[in-house]
Design a protein around this nucleic acid. Structure first.
Lengths: 147, 147
DNA sequence: TCCATATAGATGCAAGTGCATCTACTTAAG
DNA sequence: CTTAAGTAGATGCACTTGCATCTATATGGA
């Protein structure tokens, strides 16, 4: 029986709470501004990075850590909103290439200041830069257990 | 324009990733064991703590940080699964009192070893106890911005 | 007492998610 | 060429979540 140490449980609760507080803060700010949710931002940014060449959905889903059907439907919604373009790809009749429309770029850019302001407030308002650096280091150890 | 420092962004990404990794690990383990999800565990535990006296849903939702309708429906599902009991309350005809059934207790207890094993592995397998303690301290600063 | 307001909880509807499966195309092996 | 296996992406169905609203009871005045 692997009973966790009390410190382990406390750390996990703190992790879940901190994530929730920061995330909800950002989501609330976006919603209040009438902007899409954070997952759209992530997707828009990743597609934007791919530039005019675009990106394949199967590639995108790896970067965004979404399940295949989740990616498919997120693209559906973003396409319906006019933010992304899907076009067939030359060599592979199964696939498609996704790229941002001008409006997609514009929405992504409108989201950033709201996102940034809230994130800055949440993080820089609570901990110093050294603490943030320590925190990130420890969190990355948790996220990448390649002991 | 409050542009976040690069360290701030890195910390936020690390926070989201660490949370996701630990959470998914636990959820996967519970699912693989054919057990309910973590949110049920939290609810079952909180109700169990209330003992025979039970607890009011409006109270429970504060502790679990759920919206009112979310609490209402979670109780629906847990009641349908036979894990909780809802009964009217004496002085307040609007309200109800929720308590665990024996099966609710038993399910909660069955979930714990699975939850505990995975949590222990995620945390204690990646960082030392001192690190966990530092991490919790920093995360709590993030979650409680009472500067 | 009567009414306005507040509180506890439920619910209709639209949207999002998870799972399994399906279609279409591609690739490799015979 | 033909066929089996693999890969890209879509989708039907059940379930969950969010939002707004609804019902029912409670409470604090006039």
């Amino acid at each position: 029986m692997t009973e966790p140490k009390p410190q382990t449980i406390a750390t996990w609760i703190a992790l879940a709470n901190a994530n929730r507080v920061v995330l909800e803060g950002i989501e609330d700010a976006l919603k209040a501004a009438g902007l899409p949710r954070l997952d759209w931002y992530d997707a828009l940014l990743e597609i934007e990075k791919a530039g005019a060449a675009g990106i394949r959905p199967f590639d995108l889903k790896e970067r965004l850590l979404l399940p295949q059907y989740g990616m498919s439907r997120l693209l559906d919604r973003m396409a319906k909103a006019g933010l992304v373009d899907r076009q067939g790809v030359e060599n592979d009749g199964r696939g498609q290439i996704v790229s941002l429309t001008p409006e997609g770029r514009s929405v992504r850019r409108a989201m950033w200041p709201v996102y940034a302001e809230r994130l800055t407030r949440s993080v820089e308002g609570s901990i110093s830069q050294e603490e943030a650096s320590d925190l990130a280091r420890l969190l990355n150890k948790l996220a990448h257990p390649e002991s």
